[in-house]
Amino acid sequence: MNTYRFRILVLASSLALLSSLGLWATAVEAWWTPPPSSSCGSSTFPATGQTASYPPLLKITDAPVRDDGLVRAGGALSYQNNGDGTITDLNTGLMWEQKIRDSEGLHDVFQAFPWDSATPTIWDWLEEVNAEGGTGLAGYNDWRIPNVKELQSIVDYGKFILAVDPAFNNGPGFNNGPFFPSCSVAECSLTGPGDYWSATSFDISPFNAWLVHFGFGGGSVHFSGKTSTNFVRAVRGGCVP
C-alpha cells in the first residue's frame, strides 16, 4: 500500500470514529469557525450640510469644479428629538445627549470640564450621566465621550454660528439675551459656543486631546492640553467592540 492511500484510509477512519462518537460537528467547528456577524448595523455617512457652491475666483482653466456645495455627497443631515433628553442622528444611528439651560445642572449647556485634572473631569461628569435616575440618561447607562470623528459628524458646515443643525440649537436659552433663562428638554436644545472634547488623544503628545469647535467659524478640529476646560456632549451607540 502506498503512502498516499494509507493517509486517505487513516483520515477516513478518523472521521468515521468522530461521527460515531457524535464529535463530527465539534471537530468541524474547531477546524473552521465562521467570523461573527457584525453588530454595528447599517449607517449612512452624513453630508457636511454645505449646500452653496463656492467656485475658485482666480482659476483660468476650463477644468470643471465640483466642490462640496455642488456635489453634496453623503446623507442629508437628519435628526430626531426623542423627547427624553436625547437626539438620534438618522444617518449614523448615534444617540446624542440634548443640552439645555438648567442652572448648572447635569445637562446645562454651559457645563465645562477638563479632560484630565485633580478637579472633576469629563469622566466624572460622564459617570453621573450613566447613573442619572438610577438607570442613566433616558434609561441608558452606556453613554460615552464621542471620538473626534463622531463629534465632527454633527457639524453643519452650511452654518457659521453655531455650526450645528437646529436639532442642536433651538429655543430660548443661549441665544436669548444676557440672562440665559432656564429651558427644559421640551423647550430647547442648545450647543455651547466653543470647543467640545472628544475621547481621542493626540497620539504624538498624549497630554493633549482633540476637540471640535462649534462656535464662531465652527467646524474646525484642533487639539488642546487635557487640563484645559471645555464643553462636552455624551453619545451612545455606534460600532463599539
Score class of each variant (00 low, 15 high):
residue 227 T to C: 10
residue 185 V to H: 00
residue 225 G to W: 08
residue 148 V to H: 01
residue 104 E to T: 13
residue 160 F to A: 05
residue 183 C to F: 02
residue 189 S to Q: 02
residue 131 A to W: 07
residue 181 P to C: 08
residue 191 T to F: 01
residue 212 V to A: 14
residue 224 S to L: 09
residue 111 Q to Y: 05
residue 218 G to C: 06
residue 182 S to P: 14
residue 190 L to E: 08
residue 113 F to A: 06
residue 102 D to A: 06
residue 224 S to P: 04
residue 113 F to G: 06
residue 108 D to M: 03
residue 190 L to M: 10
residue 228 S to I: 07
residue 128 E to C: 13
residue 115 W to A: 13
residue 155 V to I: 15
residue 111 Q to M: 13
residue 222 H to S: 13
residue 121 T to K: 08
residue 162 L to Y: 00
residue 196 Y to C: 00
residue 103 S to A: 15
residue 210 W to K: 09
residue 140 Y to I: 09
residue 106 L to V: 08
residue 209 A to S: 14
residue 123 W to R: 05
residue 138 A to R: 00
residue 151 L to F: 07
residue 195 D to G: 12
residue 195 D to A: 15
residue 184 S to R: 04
residue 193 P to M: 02
residue 107 H to N: 01
residue 214 F to C: 01
residue 143 W to I: 11
residue 187 E to G: 13
residue 200 T to W: 01
residue 201 S to G: 11
residue 162 L to V: 04
residue 223 F to A: 14
residue 197 W to L: 11
residue 115 W to M: 12
residue 184 S to W: 01
residue 220 S to P: 10
residue 112 A to Y: 00
residue 112 A to E: 02
residue 203 D to P: 12
residue 119 T to Y: 06
residue 225 G to F: 12
residue 140 Y to H: 10
residue 216 F to E: 07
residue 228 S to D: 08
residue 188 C to W: 03
residue 154 I to Y: 08
residue 194 G to D: 06
residue 192 G to H: 04
residue 191 T to D: 02
residue 230 N to D: 04
residue 169 N to D: 08
residue 217 G to S: 09
residue 109 V to T: 10
residue 203 D to M: 11
residue 182 S to R: 05
residue 181 P to V: 07
residue 197 W to F: 09
residue 141 N to V: 11
residue 223 F to M: 14
residue 165 D to N: 13
residue 169 N to H: 08
residue 207 F to M: 10
residue 193 P to Y: 00
residue 126 L to E: 06
residue 228 S to N: 08
residue 169 N to K: 00
residue 104 E to V: 10
residue 201 S to V: 15
residue 149 K to I: 13
residue 132 E to A: 11
residue 168 F to H: 02
residue 166 P to S: 05
residue 162 L to F: 03
residue 117 S to A: 09
residue 176 N to K: 03
residue 163 A to V: 11
residue 223 F to N: 13
